[in-house]
Design a protein around this nucleic acid. Sequence first.
DNA 1: GATGAATGAGTATTCATTCAT
DNA 2: AATGAATGAATACTCATTCAT
Lengths: 215, 215, 215, 215
Amino acid sequence: MQGYFQLDTVGHGKRERTRAALLDGAMRVIAAKGMENAKISDITETAGLANGTFYNHFEDKDEILREVAYGIAGEVGRTIDEQMVDIGDARTRVVVATSRFIAMAVKEPEWGAVLIGSVEHMPNVRKDIMQYLHADLELGVEQGVFDIRLDQFLLDQIAALVVVSIRLQMNAGRTSELTVQTCENILRLCGLSPAAASRTVKKAQKQLADPLQTV
Amino acid sequence: MQGYFQLDTVGHGKRERTRAALLDGAMRVIAAKGMENAKISDITETAGLANGTFYNHFEDKDEILREVAYGIAGEVGRTIDEQMVDIGDARTRVVVATSRFIAMAVKEPEWGAVLIGSVEHMPNVRKDIMQYLHADLELGVEQGVFDIRLDQFLLDQIAALVVVSIRLQMNAGRTSELTVQTCENILRLCGLSPAAASRTVKKAQKQLADPLQTV
Amino acid sequence: MQGYFQLDTVGHGKRERTRAALLDGAMRVIAAKGMENAKISDITETAGLANGTFYNHFEDKDEILREVAYGIAGEVGRTIDEQMVDIGDARTRVVVATSRFIAMAVKEPEWGAVLIGSVEHMPNVRKDIMQYLHADLELGVEQGVFDIRLDQFLLDQIAALVVVSIRLQMNAGRTSELTVQTCENILRLCGLSPAAASRTVKKAQKQLADPLQTV
Amino acid sequence: MQGYFQLDTVGHGKRERTRAALLDGAMRVIAAKGMENAKISDITETAGLANGTFYNHFEDKDEILREVAYGIAGEVGRTIDEQMVDIGDARTRVVVATSRFIAMAVKEPEWGAVLIGSVEHMPNVRKDIMQYLHADLELGVEQGVFDIRLDQFLLDQIAALVVVSIRLQMNAGRTSELTVQTCENILRLCGLSPAAASRTVKKAQKQLADPLQTV
DNA sequence: GATGAATGAGTATTCATTCAT
DNA sequence: AATGAATGAATACTCATTCAT
């Protein structure tokens, strides 16, 4: 079973491969039991390694959690960014980014679990993740399409909406309907009227329809 | 130091007072370390009691946490309800309830901690708390002032906005500005235009201005 | 509900009645959970008294257990003794005493539990209980009907047979068959042939048939 | 101090040795305080290990007690069995088995404590231990030398005699005299006359005289 | 570097006993 | 005498971390 982190290590030395196995193990454990309840022994067992091996690669539990979080968050951010290079309208960007983000989290529940855990327990990672959103909101203000006061508080509120959506879909099964509603709500927060929000989301969905490989 | 639960016990027997001391201890510990990390020994120590005393009053840790949660949630709900008996407009009700809720949570950080912990870790209490909101949203739909699909998902999203607001104000200091913004955002979610949301909140603030004793 | 110990206290003072209630409570608890697992709080609760009352009447847990044990053991011994005043044949006496003993223990499971607990955990009480048996065995030797070496060891072995029988009947339901077999085995231990043992038990049963009120 | 379980581990890995140390520790603790009162901390302390080490080797307290019990019971059973392969007479077999059993229990008081604890508190182990006896009683019935009703009750009664014998000898010092008497009593229970019982035991003792290494 | 055994501080819970009312 | 609340020592079990091989 090749996990996400291990994909980066083909051709690398043993050390890297073991390290990646631990990161992947941690990710699976987080998906299974949540970030709070991940035990070192779960992680090493899942990775097929001995207990003590862990400490050859990580200082302590916090470190691996942080690395997993940054790894996934970075990958998600980069992937979404790539897929949006040619989208210029801020409203569309927000919808596409949000949809993508939710889709990745729900399609790969391991990523979803890590993302949720990160947003809730790791402020730094949360800030990191929301950097992308921040840029798009700024763009929307410049384009005159968002009626907002752009500050950390708004970012946190939007993030909370996304987390709620992911969590519900992870538990109750993926529903594009919920994602649509989430996007509409975010646009409403940004000042769009219900009608405009709905219209924007529908239009954006078309752009999303085509190239949808997430991992 | 007289805690919230102890106020109910003047004139009662020793049993009630000790029980209240434990509930207050639990509340303080939750405020200090979060609901997840509250230890029995923390609680008894904070209450100035021996370890074993805890079990003369509560079955186990879950029980006291539940009682604290229901105690605070009930009190908050009742207080807000009382103060809204003569408000008929759903939009105003939502704003007043939200403002009051946030105000109580922030003014008494111990209550805030319990409320946040409850919403995050105790589904039953969460449902209880959101019952009030649900009724007002329904009212707004009947009054034709909200453009929403009223379901659990929307309730969860609104609750998330409130929690974010409380958490931020608990950390960064109380700011009526943030509460205003939170209310506006909720109204936006409900379909009001930015202008209408702002106007509604401003108007509602006047009604809030007068009798503001929270505890 | 009038327990055994309370019967002795009609007309006595309050102190005696409370004390008796505790003894009866202890007896019931022993019957329900065994001597090892009897808790003070069980006893007082069963007696309908407050926790602390216990220590107004007994030094500690051991004391009440001992008193219950001696109380029941004495009563059983005396009752059996009375009913055997006019039985002269040692073999018959052994059979009658054993049958009676088992019958009382099984018919009043509370007594049975106390007796078993005593025999197993309280050497002094055990010795006390077996005094009666000792006398009959001695008699049998004098009468030339027992072929034994009469020592503590033999007494313990016979006691063990009786305990096994009581325990089985308490669990699986009273069976006179088992009592018969137990008596026969004891007689075999005493040197009687299987045929003689069987004959003796049958004959003794007749004497038992008549006045059978045990408690 | 080399315990019984450690003897099996020369040449094995550290894990096995530690595990054996715990088993031996448990055995010593059982000998000192009885199976009921054996605490984990006693066991680890006796084994010279840290508290937590216990749980690297056993699921919980029950597991180690069961393993100790089965270990000793199995060893005792096998040893006795081996030494009786060429004994065909059921009466002799019963005597030899009983004598051996008692001898092993008394000579190694730790074994005795475990065996007694097992018989009293672990029905499965008791059944296991008495299987051997059951077979020999059956044989005796076939051979027409026992006049018994062979059922669980009889097995329990015989077992009780053996336990009494072991317990007394463990407290009062080993006495072959008591063992002889125990065997005679068992044979009496099986229907032999005192004379025949005595004769059988004497004869069997000769066979026992020679190869008497127990552990 | 990997291994995995050992460690021990930490945590919930029980219950006999004390003691103020 | 009775009450019943408070006590705290005792105990099973968890898990991050260390360390010898």
